[in-house]
Write a protein that binds this DNA or RNA. Structure first.
Length: 695
DNA sequence: TAAAAGTGTCATGCA
DNA sequence: CATGCATGACACTTT
């Protein structure tokens, strides 16, 4: 194992650590000896040439990136550990980071980058082996870097001993050192020219005289620490992981009480979380799963590794991880310098990246066996800058940040999210992803830019973290314009409903993704869960108006409001969308009410008409009855009349031969039936039949 | 678990 | 032309 010792300042260890939390692919397991200053830098996006050392042994790099902003994309801030304040009362009560971030007022997603880089890799000397590498390049401004170095290739001796090599890496490193004491500097320089050259590039100040001096110094320290470490390792070697963690914790305490202060990332997150306007609002330490004792432990075996991953991230996120490595700060901050990366290396890495893209998924479910040896060597060479002390004397904590691009960007990608902006323009940020293929680790880092943008949009504005446990990215003001544009572009092109499925997938945008809402809702805390989507969006974008206000406000007031406040295009767009949707929602509700009222009214009409019908039927039957009664009376009267009638000869008049007929003048005459009007004749006949039947 | 009801949203047309 | 409103249609959620 090779470790590059963090450089030490007069006041203690000042370890500049790079932690790039890619929302998609990066995950960091680390626990570092951090003390005085912690510089947090906010990468607007991953930079070209950034290497990703994957825990599965793969090495990747960023092959396509947007230009580095001329203004300097790296926000940089300082966070002071409370212990530092104690030592330095004059130190500001809060880190520059917080102050600067507060001053930003722009969306940012917490991320952490401390000046040096940290490498965590499973590239090993053999194909199946794995080793963990923790690298700490010195900050360019920070002076030399001690280098307790062991051969990387010795991390997993015996080939096929990956698990063992991983789990016992620190110990194994010590053993290796005892058996064949490695000369760190010599190894660095003894590496083949190619590797050395790359190391030169990557390690930057590592080869400075001061650095060499520090290396020697740190080598001594490393040997001491190795002895201590080996003792500790032997004590805890057979203990369960949790016991090992306890041991590590106690060791941490010891370090805290000792000369070397201990400052883990957990401390960092706690510190951040303790801030009133904390940047990592809601960051749950539960999501920062403790690493099993050491990175190496975490790298112990694929199985163990996976288990840790699953446990480390308590969400259903796809756990991708990688360490984003860069040579040094200068390199990282300077795009020109960055482009000076050896093209060969880039190409090689690119090829690996491309190979990686073909792999199903990136959640590192196992160690990939096909790691190219050359690549491995390259990785090893790049991993010289590792300080065993880091593993040795630090409580290795897992910063489990397995981000699934689909899930970390849930807010923006909520089904139906519509920025209200045009559909037709291309999605630049997406194109970046596509250019790198959307599923590679490399893309994960690169894509994290866009993903970060999502968070920038949704979660980070004003420091709001929609998914606190997920969002650990910080942006700084210098990046805001750059990042903001990216964000806006992304959202601008994020209309969902006419995109092809592939596009939806690539943009993590789904208009109808079954189960996604539930998935999203899982990430919402109780407060946010009660909010509507627009409310969450408004909250995410830190829109200074309530959704209700936006919707109900008269158009004049609305327009004046928009003009009065300085709002980004994105905010204005969202506000208009909110207003449009809100009004339409009310309109739809009214429409449905009206529709329901119409239906209810129609039902009432039906009921009343049915009642009326029944009434009429009853009246009809009553009329019929009355008519029949009248007819009966008429018949009786008829019969009575005829019974009294006599002809000229005194004989009774038969009603069968004669009928009574009213004349126009009102008189009644007896008419022979054959002389009767046909209608009257029939009527009389009917009456006769009825009477006969009744009789 | 399937079906119905409810809801939000979008597209479209009209005023 | 911008805006509001109404409404059908669709997808999704809730019952």
């Amino acid at each position: 194992m090779k470790y590059l010792k963090p450089w030490w300042s007069d006041g203690g260890s000042l370890f500049h650590l790079t932690i790039l939390l890619s929302l998609a692919e990066l995950r960091l397991d680390l626990d570092l000896d951090l003390d005085l200053d912690l510089y947090l830098l906010f990468p607007p996006r991953t930079l070209l040439g950034d290497e990703l050392l994957l825990r599965n042994g793969q090495t990747s790099h960023i092959s396509a990136l947007s230009p580095f902003p001329a203004s300097g994309g790296w926000g940089r801030a300082e966070l002071l550990h409370p212990k530092c304040w104690e030592r330095d009362p004059a130190a500001p009560p809060e880190g520059r980071l917080l102050r600067e971030v507060r001053a930003l007022g722009v969306p940012f997603i917490p991320s952490i980058r401390v000046d040096a880089w940290l490498v965590h890799s499973v590239a090993a000397g053999d194909a199946d082996g794995a080793h963990a590498l923790l690298g700490a390049a010195a900050a360019s401004s920070a002076g030399g870097v001690g280098a307790g170095v062991e051969g990387v290739s010795q991390a997993a001796p015996g080939g096929g001993g990956g698990p063992r090599a991983v789990q016992s890496s620190p110990l194994a490193a010590g053993e290796e050192e005892e058996k064949a004491p490695a000369e760190p500097t010599a190894q660095v320089s003894d590496a083949d020219g190619h590797a050395s050259e790359e190391n030169e590039v990557l390690r930057g100040v590592s080869h400075s005289p001061q650095h060499e001096e520090n290396e020697q110094r740190s080598s001594t320290q490393k040997e001491k620490s190795l002895q201590q470490k080996n003792e500790d390792e032997n004590k805890v070697a057979d203990k369960p992981a949790w016991e090992a963690e306890k041991t590590t914790e106690s060791r941490s305490e010891r370090y805290q009480n000792g000369t070397d202060s201990f400052f883990s990332l957990e401390d960092l997150f706690q510190l951040l979380s303790s801030q009133p306007e904390n940047l990592l609002e809601g960051v749950s330490l539960g999501d920062i799963a403790p690493l099993p004792r050491s990175i190496n432990d975490g790298m112990n075996s694929p199985t163990h590794y996976n288990v840790n991953f699953s446990e480390a991230v308590s969400h259903d996120v796809s756990l991708h991880e990688a360490m984003l490595r860069c040579s040094d700060n200068t390199f990282r901050r300077d795009p020109v310098a960055r482009t000076s990366q050896p093209q060969e290396q880039i190409l090689q890495l690119s090829s690996i990246t491309n190979t990686e893209q073909t792999l199903p998924g990136t959640n590192l479910t196992g160690f990939l066996p096909f790691v190219d040896n050359q690549m491995r060597n390259l990785s090893q060479d790049h991993l010289y800058d590792l300080d065993i002390n880091i593993l040795d004397e630090t409580n290795l904590m897992s910063l489990a940040t397995g981000f699934d691009p689909m899930e970390v960007s849930w807010l923006l990608e909520e089904p139906g999210y519509d920025s209200g902006l045009s559909l037709d323009s291309s999605n630049n940020s997406t194109s970046v992803i596509k250019s790198n293929s959307s599923h590679s680790i490399c893309e994960g880092a690169t894509g994290s830019s866009s993903d970060l943008s999502h968070h920038d949009l949704e979660g980070a504005v004003g420091g709001y973290c929609p998914e606190p446990s997920k969002l650990c990215y910080m942006n700084d003001k210098s990046d805001s314009h750059f990042h903001g544009d990216l964000v806006f572009q992304h959202v601008s092109h994020n209309h969902t409903y006419h995109l092809e499925p592939s596009a939806l997938e690539s943009t993590s945008e789904s208009f109808s993704m079954p189960g996604k809402s539930q998935k999203i809702s899982r990430y919402l805390n109780d407060t946010d869960r009660n909010l509507s989507r627009d409310e969450r969006r408004a909250k995410a974008l830190h829109i200074p108006f309530s959704v209700d206000e936006i919707i109900r406000m008269p158009v004049d007031s609305f327009n004046s409001m928009l003009s009065r406040h300085y709002l980004t295009d994105l905010q204005v767009s969202l506000i208009r969308d909110i207003r449009r949707r809100g009004k339409n929602k009310v309109a739809a509700q009214n429409c449905r009410k009206r529709k329901l009222d119409v239906i209810l009214n129609l039902e009432d009409d039906v009921c009343s008409l049915q009642a009326k019908k029944e009434t009429l039927k009853r009246e009809q039957s009553q009329c019929h009855k009355a008519i029949n009664i009248m007819k009966q009376k008429l018949h009786h009267l008829y019969c009575d009349v005829f019974s009294r009638l006599r002809d000229d000869q005194g004989r009774p008049v038969s009603p069968n031969q004669y009928a009574l007929q009213c004349t126009h003048d009102g008189s009644v005459v007896i008419v022979p039936k054959e002389l009767m009007i046909p209608g009257q004749k029939k009527e009389n006949q009917k009456g006769k039949r009825k009477n006969e039947k009744k009789n």
